[in-house]
């Protein structure tokens, strides 16, 4: 099976480590991997701001570079939801493209979805985290793709990891893409609430599956003076953080 790896634009710029962790995990399944160098962004910033043509343009670019793969894997619920759920809808008036996007969408997997379907051994590492974690459910992955137990199950494969659920765990952290820079006051308050829930668990680290949420949570925690580590769960699973 030939896997195309999609590195989200936020991961590329802000946290390349998450990209390498993803790569290691997908490698551990034994499939061959390619990272098309023409990839840029899935188009959510435009699509969610109301620029449909931008969404379609980015969708076409994705189709061009990824249609040839047996599967596409990426470490973000919101980008995966954009590709699987929104791309086909953007081509409602062009049935032939819509079908192609539907088919490609069915072959596109958020990392936890892929790892649950393909057996793998935890990559060898000297940095195996053990301790208590709380997992933040990111909205698009949770509600559009139904990603809930997958990342939790995967994390529990690590010996010594205990997951502690936070109060109001399915409430949005306040990122919302451009929302976080358009309505900063509200976004900050939402982040503050989320951080209070996280801190109430008394865990050693917080993990999530979408970098937007993680930047928000980390940004608010640091502003409040807390040093609690904030990681993508793939980093914990790949053994690149302790």
């Amino acid at each position: 099976m030939k896997i195309g790896l999609w590195i989200t634009c936020l991961v590329d710029l802000m946290r390349p480590r998450i990209g390498f962790a993803t790569l290691n995990l997908v490698r551990a399944t034994g499939h061959s991997i390619e990272i098309p160098e023409q990839q840029t962004c899935c188009g959510q910033p435009g699509f969610n701001s109301g620029d449909t043509s931008a969404g379609r343009a980015m969708a076409m670019q994705f189709l061009k570079h990824f249609e040839s793969f047996d599967a596409v894997v990426l470490a973000s619920g919101s980008c995966a939801a954009m590709i699987r759920h929104d791309y086909p809808r953007l081509f409602a008036n062009q049935p032939e493209y819509q079908v192609r996007f539907q088919e490609l969408g069915q072959r596109t997997f958020e990392l936890s979805e892929f790892l649950l379907r393909h057996p793998f051994d935890l990559p060898p590492t000297t940095q195996r985290f053990s301790g208590r974690l709380t997992y933040h459910d990111s909205c698009s992955g949770l509600r559009t793709l139904g990603i809930r137990s997958g990342p939790r199950q995967l994390l529990q494969r690590i010996p010594g990891v205990e997951i502690v659920e936070m109060p109001d765990r399915e409430v949005c952290c306040g990122f919302g893409g451009a929302f976080s820079v358009k309505l900063g006051d509200i976004a900050t308050r939402m982040a503050e609430n989320k951080c209070r829930s996280i801190l109430a668990t008394g865990v050693d680290a917080v993990v999530g599956g979408d970098l937007g949420c993680l930047l928000t949570i980390e940004g608010r925690l640091r502003r409040e003076g807390h040093s609690l580590p904030v990681w993508h769960w793939a980093e914990v699973l790949a053994g690149t953080v302790t």
Binding site: L13, M14, R15, P16, S180, V181, K182, L183, G184, D185, A187, T188, R189, A191, E192, L215, T216, E218, G219, R220, R222, R223
Partner: peptide, 11 residues
């Protein structure tokens, strides 16, 4: 709007 209430950890 971001930095008023949240830090941003640089890459």
């Amino acid at each position: 709007d971001w930095t008023q209430g949240r830090n941003l950890k640089a890459p």
